[in-house]
């Protein structure tokens, strides 16, 4: 097909809910940044109490190894993710983009869709968000759209379900 020779894949049309940024920030705080900052704080306090002489070299070390990475992850990751994450339901396929440093764009035809799962974790519920997972027969073909608003997720899963019924296919 020569007309595809210079074709580019455009990003999906719809962004995820803006509240997803706060969800990702909270997630980062709980899983990575929080513990790192806590560790840095504990070590700094302990050093201050018992080995004040160590502070001149320990302080910068903690700053470089723990504090700066933790804070930059906390600040950068959610924004970056929000810029990347997107989804679109086309006429014949579902299309989703995800990730931040390593980015992934996946397209699965509706004829191959097997199930549509909507998951709301405890943190997501707080912000009224949901994750929609569209599974196919291949684990490398599963599409996950994280950070949708509840309403969008419901609408999307309903529409994918309908579309998958309309598009003929054996899902294998």
């Amino acid at each position: 097909m020569p007309e595809h020779a210079t074709a580019l894949l455009r990003p999906p049309r719809h962004r995820v809910d803006p509240r997803a940024r706060r969800w990702w920030t909270l997630q980062a705080l709980l899983t990575l940044s929080g513990p790192m900052l806590l560790l840095a704080l504990t070590m700094a306090v302990l050093s201050l109490l018992f080995f004040p002489g160590a502070l001149p070299w320990l302080g910068p070390l903690l700053l470089v190894v723990l504090v700066v990475p933790a804070v930059s992850y906390l600040v950068v990751m959610p924004r970056w993710r929000y810029a990347v994450h997107a989804w679109e339901l086309g006429e014949r396929a579902v299309y989703a983009a995800g990730g931040w440093f390593w980015q992934k764009r996946r397209i699965a035809p509706l004829s191959r869709v097997q199930t549509v799962d909507t998951v709301r974790g405890p943190l997501q519920r707080r912000y009224g968000l949901a994750t929609v997972t569209v599974t196919t027969a291949s684990t490398a073909g599963d599409i996950k759209i994280a950070g949708l608003s509840d309403a969008d997720a419901e609408e999307l899963s309903r529409r994918i379900g309908e579309a998958a019924q309309d598009v003929p296919g054996d899902a294998a």
């Binding site: 007309e3 074709a7 455009r10 014949r92 035809p109």
Partner: peptide, 15 residues
């Protein structure tokens, strides 16, 4: 698109 037609054509742009 050429190898497996019918999956991603609708998301392509031709610059």
């Amino acid at each position: 698109a050429a190898a497996a037609p019918g999956i991603l054509e609708e998301f392509l742009v031709h610059p």
